Every structure is written in C-alpha cells, then in structure tokens.
Simulated assay, not measured.
Amino acid sequence: MSAIITASGVAKTFRQAKRLPGLGGAIRSLFSRDYSQVHAVTEISFAIAAGEAVGYLGPNGAGKSTMIKMMTGILVPTAGSLSVLGREPHSQRMVNAAEIGVVFGQRSQLWWDLPVRDSFDLHRHIYDIAPARYTDNLAFLCDMLAMSDYLDRPVRQLSLGQRMRAEIAMALLHDPKILFLDEPTIGLDVVAKDAVRKFLAHINRERGTTIILTTHDLQDIEEICPRLIMVDDGKLLFDGELSRLRAALGSRRRLRLEFGTDPGPIALSTARLVNDEGAAKHFLLDSETTSILDVLTELGTGYDLKDVALVEPAIEEVIRTFYQQKPHLAAAP
C-alpha cells in the first residue's frame, strides 16, 4: 500500500531569545539579545499508508505537537522533506486543509457563544460541503457520537466530553482522508473516553480514515492504534507494532499459579517468582520462548495446582520499560 504521508530527515529548530535575570538583564535585552537554538524535531523519517491508525508517542517536550503542526502545514520544517497526500503541507496549506481534519485537545474550533449547530454550519460554508453530503455526515456523526441532545446548545454550556465529541465531529464533516488528533481525550472521564475511542476505531476500520494520534493515555493507543511511532528529545526511537515492541524488550509476561494450599517457596529455572501471596504465586517468565507447558513440566505433579493464568504486560509497563532502556535500544541496529 502506497504511503500518503512521508517524512524524510525532517527537522525543526526554533530560535529562542535568552532572558537575563534581574532589572539589569531586562534593560540589556532592550539593546542586545542573545539567542539559542532549540531542536524540537531532529531528522525524523517515516511513511504512513492510507487507512493506518498510528500512535505518535513521547514524553512532554519530545516534539509530538511540533510534528503534527508540520504535517498540517502550520509550521515549516527547518530541514528535510515532508509530503502529505502528495503535497508539501506548508506551501499548499489551503489545498491540504481541504483533505485533512485536525483536533487539538487544548484548542477549540467551536464558537463559544453559539450553538454547536451554528459552528457546524459555518464549517460547511468554509469547506463548501454539498448540502446533501453535509446532511448525511451530520446525521451519521450525531448518531455515532450521541450529540443530538445538545446540537442547539451554546458551546459554553457543554461538558468537556460533549465539547470534545463536537470537536471531533466538526473535523470530520468534510470527509477528510486523514484525521490528526493531538491529545483528544485529555481531561475526559472514563465514559467519554470510551465513547471517543470506540468512534475513532470505527471510522478507521469502516471508513478507512487514516488516524495520527498523539496522547499520554496509553489505553487510547491500545484500542485505536496498532502501530506506534515513539520519539524523545525530538529523535525517532521506535517505529512498528506494539507486539514487536514487546518482543524487542524481551518477555514481560506474568504467570499466576493458584494452589489449593500454600506450597511454600517455589524455585524454577524457567520463571522467576515476583509476588508470593501464599496459595497464589506470580512468576515472570524468563524468555519470550518460554511456554506455560515449560513451567508446568518443571513444576511437576507434586502440588495441588488449581488454576493457571498467563497475563500479558500492560501497555503502560511496556512503554515505561522502553523509555528506561532507550539508550540501549537506540544504539541497537
């Protein structure tokens, strides 16, 4: 499948004025200033195919939002080349905007004092959406995101979850081929997050909308994005599926063995005891190739074993382990 987004050696450097302390420093700054270079993005390359859902992850200050802004044409790369739907985003920003949707979790496209419907109608005129197409899309989005009850309420009267659903709907009214989402679930409650995640997974799966998502809520990634792009200090550290990341870090699978009575300490060569609850014992499997059968074979039949459960590591643990080991992983081929 051909790529609709390609980045090759993309970099972004900002020129930042140095602020000197005290009144004297403030006066000196009026006549002469020193500047420093801040490297927000450094030689990042990747390709994203149509219909993919990609999580763009990294700690605060890693360059995630800067990259999103370059892909949407808001910022101009300092170096490298960037193509979105065959165009250079910043030089063809108007044409590019007609085929993408953008949601910034801490910014709003909605008009604060107007009903949601009026903001949608203004969007229809800006994007010159045909009336029939607009009606169909609005009906679909209202149904999927349960917005019908508050379409005629002013935006300022909406809860954060309602407003975010309206923001996402507005970004999709013109049928964009790519949807960029920067922290779309920030501050939402559990119910609102679940509704947004299910909707995004649906439009990616059923409508083939390409999704690029930055988030600190790793459950967003697990439910929406099979592929991860991970960055830190503006540099690309990992690009691939979550399953490959798990494999690259070595197995972190846990095995829970429940016995009829406490068998006492158990030492195994195939697994390491990490939590002893008496009759229930938790082991960390030593390698990716170790199976439950290997452990049970070594354990033998001299125990009153009642239940066995294999627990895959949570995505939070996988990501945390990755960043803890990033110097080693970044150096690996």
Rank of each mutant, 00 (worst) to 15 (best):
R87N: 12
E88T: 14
E88Q: 12
E88A: 12
E88H: 11
E88R: 11
P89T: 06
P89Q: 03
H90F: 12
S91P: 10
S91T: 14
Q92F: 07
Q92G: 12
R93T: 11
M94S: 15
V95S: 15
V95M: 13
V95N: 12
N96C: 15
A97E: 03
A97Y: 07
E99Y: 11
E99I: 06
E99F: 08
I100L: 05
G101L: 04
V102K: 00
V103Y: 01
V103H: 00
V103N: 02
F104W: 04
G105Q: 01
Q106M: 02
Q106R: 07
S108K: 02
S108F: 03
Q109G: 10
Q109P: 10
Q109R: 01
W111I: 11
W111V: 03
W112Q: 05
D113T: 05
V116C: 10
R117I: 14
S119D: 13
F120P: 10
F120G: 09
F120E: 06
L122H: 10
H123W: 04
H123R: 11
R124N: 12
H125L: 13
I126T: 14
D128Q: 13
D128G: 04
I129N: 08
I129W: 04
I129Q: 07
A130V: 06
A130I: 06
P131W: 05
A132S: 13
A132T: 12
R133Y: 00
R133F: 00
Y134C: 10
T135A: 15
T135E: 15
D136Y: 10
D136G: 10
A139D: 13
F140K: 14
L141V: 08
L141G: 04
C142Y: 03
C142F: 01
M144R: 15
M144H: 14
M144F: 11
L145Y: 07
L145E: 12
A146N: 14
A146V: 09
A146Y: 09
A146E: 15
M147P: 08
D149K: 11
Y150W: 11
L151E: 07
L151M: 15
R153N: 12
P154Y: 05
P154L: 08
P154E: 07
V155N: 07
Q157C: 10
Q157D: 13
L158A: 11
G161P: 06
Q162S: 10
M164V: 03
R165F: 04
A166Y: 09
E167R: 01
E167F: 02
I168M: 04
M170W: 01
A171T: 02
D175G: 03
D175Q: 14
I178C: 08
L179S: 03
D182L: 01
D182T: 01
E183Y: 04
P184C: 06
P184H: 05
P184F: 01
P184K: 05
I186D: 00
G187E: 00
D189F: 03
V190L: 13
V191W: 00
V191K: 11
D194G: 06
D194W: 06
V196A: 08
V196Q: 03
R197L: 01
K198I: 04
K198G: 15
L200T: 00
L200F: 01
